[in-house]
Simulated assay, not measured.
Amino acid sequence: MRIVVAPDSFKGSLSAAQACAAVEAGALRAVPGAEVAAVPMADGGEGTLDCFLRSRAGDAVEVAAADPLGRPVRARYALSGDGRSAVVELAAASGLPLVEDVPPDPMNAATTGTGELIADAVRRGARDVLVCIGGSASTDGGAGLLRALGFRFLDAAGAELPPGGAALARLASIDGSGVPDAVRATRFRVACDVTNPLVGPDGAAAVFGPQKGASPGQAAELDAALTVFADALAAAGGPRVHDLPGAGAAGGTCGGLVGALGAEPSGGALLVAEAVGLPAALAGADLVVTGEGRVDGQSAAGKVVSAVAVLARARGVPCVALAGGVAGPLEELHALGLTAAFSIADGPRTLDELRAEAAALLSGAAEQAVRLFAR
């Protein structure tokens, strides 16, 4: 029996790799001779880089970069074995945890460090870059990232703007003449798990600005600045990204990448699945076991469980999800390919108890689930 184990992390208790180990132990108790392929998963946010590296699809490259406030930091990205592709996690250089030691500065925080990681990957020969966005500390539309790749953002007098989202309110033109040909020749894909547009009441500043310390007034200023930015991207020949679903992800970074470099946004989990080799791992599988902290109706909206279910269905493989909690309705997940979902709880439990005993409970639930399909 061949079993593929492809869970997300159980946040607050188990990493994706630890969840794989727990499921594998349970599966082997059910079928001692089973072949188990562990493929730790993520949805494109924090943790994606580690999943990619654990899949042995690439090596970590550590470089000097700028944190959201311009301070020096060491950050990693992954470069494939052949050097042709890279995975860059925005949180590594531009994430909120990097600025927890200082008061929030939502108006001036920037994504420059993420651009420096991408620039290094391109210099090393990568021509397919997956940018995993999530946990951003800035609302600059990805302007800092683009500046690190050679773009210049100019005011009406032709002077270059300082970093940060607030400065974009004075943006008059975008100069892309200094962008290297190698950057232009690179395919950029953006893994994101939100559908918010760039601007407006559901946009980057209005919805996510407060999480980064923006007051209502600052959020309104940032929204206006991002509107100016989107107008300038369109004037420079890019697509209109104002209302593009997902453009508001990571403080508008997705919108900036699409507008300036024609990046391809997509649900994070499916892109991660491709990057870590899940489709190939599913060849010849008899069962797929996935999971995350909670499975419910929202899991169908691009989460790991739904992505794994879709890939399993395409290959005619039954797919079972295990989670700390399971709540309906699950009809949409079943339609996507999920065979069944089970909670790991073995009786009434507090959340703290579930987290403390997550590995043992997950392993036990996996054993019982695999027994249903054993032959």
Results as ranks from 00 to 15, higher is better:
A143N: 08
S94W: 05
E89R: 08
E89D: 11
L90C: 12
A148Q: 09
G115L: 11
L90M: 15
A137I: 03
L149G: 02
S94K: 07
E116N: 07
L117W: 04
A121C: 13
T111F: 12
L130P: 03
L145W: 01
V102I: 08
E116R: 13
D105I: 01
A93C: 04
E116G: 09
T139H: 09
V102Q: 15
D120E: 15
A137T: 06
D101I: 00
P97Q: 01
G144A: 04
P97G: 00
L96R: 10
R124K: 14
M107Q: 14
P106M: 02
G144P: 11
A119N: 13
I133P: 08
A93H: 05
N108T: 15
T111E: 07
S136F: 06
R124E: 08
L98S: 07
P97K: 01
C132T: 13
T114E: 07
P103T: 07
A121F: 10
G125I: 13
T111V: 02
S94Y: 09
D120W: 03
P104L: 00
G134R: 10
A126D: 09
T114I: 03
V99P: 13
G125D: 14
S138H: 07
A126G: 03
G150Y: 14
D140N: 12
G135L: 14
A143M: 04
L98D: 01
A110V: 07
L130H: 05
A126I: 08
G135R: 13
G150T: 08
D101F: 00
R127E: 03
A121K: 14
A109L: 01
G113A: 09
D128G: 02
C132Y: 01
G141H: 12
T111I: 05
R147Q: 12
A119V: 14
P104A: 00
D140I: 02
G141W: 15
E89H: 13
